[in-house]
Design a protein around this nucleic acid. Structure first.
Lengths: 245, 245
DNA sequence: ACAAAAGTGTTCCGACTACACCCATGA
DNA sequence: TCATGGGTGTAGTCGGAACACTTTTGT
């Protein structure tokens, strides 16, 4: 995930014009915003916080921050994620840059949106100020800035990506049943899937490890539990074609 | 393509803290870079210019510019496109933001990459300074900044997108033969396709208009010419699924 | 016993693949 | 007449979609 920042060094006399050129450029504030998705009670959720700003009193906003000097965009997003959720090794990917001149009431601010997937139960929210909390994606309202637009774009991005790569596992506990997996896909894609076909599909992908355990404390016949074979997927990723529901 | 910039006006006393906040943010120079693809001699090409900078003497760079105050990112990209190619109504879409702290030797510059598709023969390069010219995508070398990386990302983006939407028509003349269309897909995807199956696929999509003309001056049996039914595609776009070679 | 979800196979159909011959034109 | 690519159909295969009954557990 984290890329090293290569210490590129150019001959000083050669870069003088480049430095001069860049100094002549207008500049804008740059931020990142994280669209952090979670899955709970068979619903896709997103992590939001109450806005600090008076214009957006009682509105919700994404977790974001400025990008620091010398900080990679990816690293900035990862930093915010870690500060807020305490979690490492979380799925994170850039979605899109948003640059409407009036998207921020305080003046022009460019933001780069990142999409992140994490298991709600695997972390505790580190900072509970400003009512940091999970919100159902299907019923969002009262969002600050253009954050509704950003969430919508990220959600569409996710719907597409999850059909190409098995990202869903990032949202589930380490051990999960096929029913939970199916509920997840149904919730994200907003469709109902045939149970037998769903199971066949994942069986044929051969990315589930049967850990020989069963669900506990369910009021019905317990299902088998599986782990996701991340290692196998990583190896196969380069030639991955898609899931195709 | 061009979105109106909504004149959002907030109560002045409410935005004071927002303005103050934004003023406290560090700022960075922001540019856009256009990866302009064309198709010529059965090869995918990209429009490049010699770099102005001494460090990148004799290296090629993408067409880019700073984003102006109050200018939408999309509009900035479109402006560059129009300035350089003189063309309107060109396909243009955002690919990704690049923000490596040392990607520009003159200091930190963030850029947002845009992908554009146009018909090489439908335009004349407006400005021929700095050896503005078309280069084969498959043999790029000696590129300035991180522009190779940007072109690679855009090319991959294109390969994916062209399998989901019939974007290829943007690269062809108004009238084209099925052979030309197939050559285009083969060049972009880097595969060979079965001619009969290819024709069947496009026939079944029903997006080609038979204009009842034939190729001229070809040293073999002339093929029929078609137009792309942009109108029909636009109507159908919302429910578009994919092309799937 | 009942409720609730787990687990499992088969048939059908549509889509993609592979493949070969005749046709129209220019040289 | 030859070289070049245009134009066409069919059989086989693979994968997705539809679909119902038995099993296991808790109450």
């Amino acid at each position: 995930m984290k890329k090293k920042i290569a210490p590129i060094v150019h001959e000083p006399h050669l870069v003088k014009d480049a430095v001069k050129l860049v100094k002549s450029y207008p500049t804008v504030p740059l931020t990142i915003d994280c669209v952090i998705f979670g899955f709970e009670e068979n619903e896709l959720k997103v992590l939001l916080i109450k806005s600090d700003l008076e214009v957006y009193k009682d509105k919700y906003s994404l977790l974001g921050d400025i990008v620091k000097d010398n900080e990679e965009l990816d690293d900035a997003a990862y930093r915010v994620l870690k500060e807020r959720t305490g979690m490492n090794d979380v799925f994170l990917d850039q979605v899109k840059a948003f640059g409407h001149p009036h998207r921020h009431p305080g003046g022009r601010v460019i933001t780069v949106a990142y999409c992140s997937l994490l298991n709600i139960n695997h972390h505790e929210l580190k900072i509970h100020d400003n009512e940091l909390n999970w919100h159902s994606v299907s019923a969002l309202q009262g969002m600050a800035f253009d954050h509704k637009e950003i969430v919508d774009a990220s959600y569409q991005w996710l719907q597409k990506r999850i059909q190409e790569h098995p990202l869903g596992f990032n949202l589930l506990p380490e051990k999960f049943s096929l029913r939970e997996l199916q509920n997840l896909y149904e919730a994200i894609l907003g469709v109902r899937l045939d149970r037998r076909n769903f199971r066949k599909k994942f069986a044929s992908m051969d990315l589930l490890i049967d850990i020989d355990e069963m669900e506990q404390d369910v009021p019905h016949r317990p299902g088998k539990l599986y782990k996701f074979n991340f290692e196998k997927y990583e190896k196969r990723k380069r030639t991955w074609i898609g899931i195709d529901f």
